[in-house]
Design a protein around this nucleic acid. Structure first.
Length: 234
DNA sequence: GCGACAG
DNA sequence: ATCTTGTCGC
């Protein structure tokens, strides 16, 4: 798969910030897709052991209508950037980009474990991946990075706007009744409405959308089974 | 300077 | 992110 807007990942936090500011203007906030036409939905996730130099990534593909697992691809790669709030994509996007670079599968939408435009510079992991892969993406984070919000009602499907600097940047969505909500924000080529609807449909039973749950399970299992994992040498 | 801070 | 045991509620 072709990668757009390629740039180096071997950068300093200052350079990363500059790249975010340059690329954010290219984010597309419009959904040109019709939810009823979505055939496949994919999810990407990363796993690593604290203080380990390797990152494990996985992309799981699902059918959107009945959420059936279709396939998955994974990869192991050395990290090139530390975890710094606001710069997560510079740590986690490289291995995910690598997986897509070598496969020809193009999901209709990609779910990401992190923020989309609900970011200090409106360019979170989902936005970064969406722009480089040219695929509609949705950020679905387990906790907030920026913005203020009111606690949404306890029923599944309830949501309240996530406001950052007087503007809506996402939604705090309750995917399961009486359970902590998730933070949903558009990444690229998708609207707030579609992001909300897709995340809800992908979470019929649990808090975390099924594709993301499975991707997390897969990548964690791969890391634990990797005999060359650095932890065995420490 | 102080507090916040995706994974 | 990961580690880690029991425990509470739908």
């Amino acid at each position: 798969m072709k990668i757009f807007h390629e740039h180096s990942w071997e950068v300093s936090p200052q350079e990363a910030r500059k790249i975010q500011l340059e690329l954010k203007s290219r984010i597309d906030f419009v959904s040109r897709m019709n939810i009823e036409d979505i055939d496949t939905v994919a999810a990407a996730d990363i796993s690593y052991h604290k203080h380990d130099r390797y990152l494990y990534a996985a992309v799981a593909l699902f059918s959107f209508s009945d959420l059936k697992f279709l396939s998955s691809h994974s990869l192991k790669m050395q990290s090139t950037f530390p975890y710094i709030p606001g710069y997560l994509s510079f740590r986690e996007a490289p291995p995910i980009i690598e997986i897509f670079r070598k496969i020809d599968t193009r999901p209709d939408v990609l779910l990401c474990d992190g923020q989309g435009i609900a970011h200090p510079r409106h360019f979170g992991l989902a936005s970064h991946l969406g722009l480089l892969l040219d695929i509609p993406t949705i950020g679905c984070a387990k906790s907030v990075l920026v913005g203020e919000y009111e606690e949404p009602p306890q029923e599944r499907g309830a949501a309240s706007p996530l406001i950052f600097k007087q503007k809506k940047v996402g939604e705090v969505l309750r995917t399961s009744s009486h359970v902590k909500p998730v933070f949903v924000s558009p990444g690229h080529k998708i609207s707030f409405e579609d992001a909300h609807e897709i995340i809800l449909r992908c979470s019929p039973r649990f808090r975390i959308p099924e594709p993301l749950r499975v991707a997390h399970k897969i990548v964690n299992e791969i890391r634990l089974n990797d005999i060359s994992d650095d932890k065995f040498f420490k």
